[in-house]
Design a protein around this nucleic acid. Structure first.
Lengths: 222, 222
DNA sequence: AGTATATCCTAACGAACGTTAGTTAGTGAC
DNA sequence: GTCACTAACTAACGTTCGTTAGGATATACT
């Protein structure tokens, strides 16, 4: 146990719906842990095998290559993140402020609940070739577009005020992403606290107005 | 040239004061580029050598090991970042708001000017053993403490208002760090724009008050 | 019982890895 | 001319890598 860890989380888990049954799932979860803790290139197939409790050759009965395992993890990670934020936003009201709160809460929630998945899906994605990474890129783009659209609707309604909208997307996305690296369940802040506080930060970044949800022209207030 | 890059920047450069003369410097700069683009583990000594225009064995005339090269880059990166923010804060006034603006401008400026250095220093640091990484950890801690102290002073003065101060540190630091991954000089926003807008975001996150620099409602200065 | 299938194994392949030993070419001093 | 020094080289070391071939074991069906 070094002082110097890549991320604070120590346990790897997949959603039951994303974890294949039997040894396939154990291999995938072992790969998640190893890739997250040491990085894709530094984790060998022999490492994955011993973490999964099988011999190296056995992995090839479940996945055709090391890169395919990473592709699967990246796909699951981005898919689950998009599903989380999309569900949250759809379940919130029509007010862009509520949608931002829902988005950021779900975004941060994902990064606190599945930190290893987030770290692997985001920081090892560059390894994937264009064919294996294609599915993931589409989803990643959708997540970003969703946030962009919410912000744009808020700007159009005069509820938000930011000089360069795309920078707000980058800032809100960036601060959420980093949570996966330092958050641990036994920390001095709970996941719910982080989600709430970060949702508040996002509203502040967007200079969300206090006025009621009514329709407003392009005039902002101060 | 893949769609799928680890960071947007394409050129590696070191500050003249940090770049050793001759081949040593060329090796260090080649390592910076390779480690940033492909990661420490995925970049081989043969890759570094050919990027630096030398043969693999020659590198060992300049550095004792691959890990020592990374340690040097991490040290330079954190040292330069700390120097930048510290100088900026010391050159600003006593008002915590001015100090935050100075800090974030310098922080973002570092990440736009030396994106590869930032990426390597932050995302490959976990590779370093305790001995080789020790020097870097100290500096990293100092940078974080500086931001924490500014925010705490603003809170004490009643100028800032955040529910959990440490989360503001994490959020402001996180959004700045991510800039290194997407920023490129030929982007549709300039480095100065990003720095200014992000400084504004930081003030908003802290709910900085508009009132003049005098003393505040609830607390007094020392 | 015999066969098919699924699952995991042992053993090893060729390639690439970080690193080292020993050598060669170029330079300036005497 | 030769000595000492520097900086680069060629070649190879032992290890580990991702991956594959082929055999063993257990369960399921006929």
């Amino acid at each position: 146990m070094t002082i110097n860890r890549r991320l604070a989380a120590t346990t790897a888990h997949l959603l039951p719906e994303h974890k294949p049954p039997g040894s396939t799932g154990r291999v995938l979860e072992a790969a998640l842990k190893m890739f997250a803790e040491h990085g894709y290139a530094a984790a060998s197939m022999r490492d994955l095998a011993s973490a999964a409790g099988v011999k190296p050759a056995t992995i090839y009965a479940h996945y055709p290559s090391k890169e395919h395992i990473l592709a699967e993890l990246c796909r699951i990670g981005h898919e689950e993140q998009y599903r989380a934020v999309r569900t949250a936003v759809l379940g919130s009201g029509a007010d862009p402020r509520d949608q931002i709160v829902a988005y950021v809460r779900a975004h941060v929630g994902f990064h606190t609940t599945y930190p290893m998945l987030a770290v692997v899906a985001n920081s090892e994605l560059h390894v994937l070739g264009e064919t294996l990474g294609a599915a993931t890129f589409v989803i990643r783009r959708q997540s970003e577009d969703l946030l962009t659209d919410i912000i744009q609707r808020g700007l159009d309604a005069g509820i938000f005020d930011v000089p360069v909208p795309w920078l707000a997307v980058a800032a809100i996305g960036g601060m959420g992403l980093r949570v996966a690296y330092w958050f641990a369940p036994d920390y001095h802040v709970t996941a719910a606290q982080v989600a709430d506080v970060y949702a508040g930060f996002a509203l502040r970044i967007l200079a969300a107005s206090d006025k009621p949800a009514g329709r407003s022209a392009s005039k902002s207030r101060k």
